[in-house]
Design a protein around this nucleic acid. Structure first.
Lengths: 204, 204
DNA sequence: AGTTAATGGTCAATCAACAAATAAGTTGAG
DNA sequence: CTCAACTTATTTGTTGATTGACCATTAACT
């Protein structure tokens, strides 16, 4: 009985290669852009062969869709773990904005997400519908916090939660994009000003 | 001496074909995305042949660069014609924001601009440096208006003009992108809320 | 005639996708 | 327990389609 270090079950192999390919896709996209995503490059970056993507995902298109789903699920999980629900509404909104903007600098996944989003806009691809859904989810969440804030009295009642949520979404979107255009940008003052603007326009 | 309707000088021919190609590029980009921009498609859309782009611009890359320059110059001209300079600072800022957001729905050029921007982010292309410059110009302009507003007393003195300008730029950027992701989006409430937020956070 | 503009044939490179071949893991009969 | 048949995972060879670019030819202007 040798040291069966390398021995894994088929399910494990499958899972590991799938995650490996997704991770590789994130890195390639975040570092070199979607244009660099070829089966060849993906194979090298993942340590597998160029043929595996097709085997696992059927096509490049589907790999990207799977990746997007993966990124979104991760994001939702991270969100749930953050404890925003326990905070007062206004505070939750502000903390969420804060966290989104920080993540972009730190996490390759966040970069990859917005780069994919850019790509879908650039190509007019139907991946946009997926992004519409994920944005709608974010805005739904923001809207609930805003309503909660209104119930608590921390947020003015005249504010329309849907519109405010959408505006906040746009703000986050734009700041994230600007960071991708100009990575040198100092995000702190923009974040601070955005938070102030939100406090003033939402706060009771 | 026949009716020389079609007779043009070489310079005119050159200028017309160049503008025709640029106009075609705008339309293709705005309607079908940058992925659809091939010499073939561009030829058909412009009414010229697929070979002309290479003749006029040398390469696809250079066509895009020329287009970007063209779009930016047009935008600057439109801006100058708008009479923002005569307004009080705060008002100019708000009117500018308003105008940017309206244009996006109306003008193909504005769509094309942001689609190209998305593409440069998606591909990590060095076209981003051009966008950094154009954004810096917009922010410079906004910054001047803000300083003017501070001198006039309409904008609070504590506001840092550079950061505020950058924040406004991000807001515009994000709202524009969101419109490209979801053309069905109702922009009016977002615009109104954004303007309110700006008034509250900048206004004295 | 001479010069400049525009066209369309052609080529080489890139790349996604398919499929046949190989490697790794599983199962069950002896 | 073990090894051979079988299933599943992975690799590698190949192909067809797309497309940017080049260039020789034709058309338009001077």
């Amino acid at each position: 009985m040798g040291v069966d270090i390398a021995r894994r079950t088929q399910t494990e192999r499958r899972r590991e290669s799938e995650l490996g390919l997704l991770r590789a896709a994130v890195e390639v996209i975040a570092r070199q852009g979607v244009g660099a995503v070829t089966f060849e490059v993906l194979g090298r970056a993942s340590g597998f062969s160029r043929g595996l993507v097709t085997q696992r995902f059927g096509s490049k298109q589907r790999l990207i869709e799977a990746l997007l789903l993966h990124l979104h699920e991760d994001r939702q999980k991270a969100l749930a773990a953050q404890g925003f629900e326990a905070m007062p509404g206004l505070e939750a909104v502000l903390a969420y904005v804060d966290q989104c903007l920080s993540q972009l600098a730190e996490r390759l996944e966040a970069r990859a997400y917005f780069i994919l989003l850019s790509s879908s806009v650039a190509e007019g691809s139907d991946l946009r519908s997926v992004f519409r859904r994920t944005h709608a989810e974010v805005e739904g969440q923001l809207g609930r916090w805003i309503r909660k804030g209104q119930a608590e009295g921390g947020i003015r009642g005249e504010v329309d939660p849907r519109s405010a949520a959408l505006m906040i979404g746009c703000m986050l979107f734009g700041t994230s994009m600007q960071m991708l255009v100009d990575p040198q940008m100092d995000i702190a003052p923009v974040r601070d000003l955005s938070l102030i603007a939100l406090k003033l326009s939402l706060g009771a």
